[in-house]
Amino acid sequence: MFEKGRDEIVKPGGSETIVGASVKLKGNLRSDGDILIEGVVTGDLKTKGSVRVGENANVIANVKAENVAVSGSVQGNVEVKDRLEISSTGRVLGDISANVLSIAPGAVFTGKCMMPESPRDESAQPTPEIEEVEVANEK
């Protein structure tokens, strides 16, 4: 199930940015499409699409994307609009936030996790619970 989820997150094709193995990228990578990382990325990563971090990849950056699948190493905060998956070989050292979170057995995660709830109506007053009690008639 986890493997199927990973494939759904990042499908090859389209205007995809690919950082191949043995390639080092440094700086602010901005994209409208998907990003696949097999090499080393240092800096800051932001995209409207999905990010996949390959098993041998090393990312030392904050990541912000629609979906993220981590099978390698990420040192930085990961902010995901929809789905974050950390596979059994994945390591995330940093804070994460996502709408849907999946961490496989064997994954390593060290940091804070935020999963936003649905927005509440702040103006509503709490309704006290009223317990009905039977009172015996006293003569």
Binding site: V19, S22, V23, K24, L25, K26, G27, N28, L29
Partner: peptide, 8 residues
């Protein structure tokens, strides 16, 4: 001017 890549 945003990012650099090094590769053999």
């Amino acid at each position: 001017g945003n990012y650099e890549v090094e590769a053999d």
